[in-house]
Amino acid sequence: MKRTLADLKRGERGIIKEFSEENIPLKLLEMGCLPGNEVEMLQMAPFRDPMYLNINGSHLAIRREIALLIEIDLISLHG
């Protein structure tokens, strides 16, 4: 199953996979959202939108519509 940033639960972490670049704002890349970097879901506003993430040490809030575009590999909590 395709897993994206939007699937992360609070406290879960993942690694950003290669993404199809077109719809992702350049600004997000510049803030450190690059393939291979680690992401942690910190908080979610009601209705899971927006989402508050720690991406590679940058603390960012992004909307769910963008989070849905970014595929990740989940890092298992106990592994």
């Binding site: 704002p25 600004k27 997000l28 803030m31 508050y52 603390h59 960012l60 809030a61 992004i62 963008i66």
Partner: peptide, 10 residues
Amino acid sequence: RSHFVIEMPN
């Protein structure tokens, strides 16, 4: 053109 990417500062 601005996208919603908000930095949450310390």
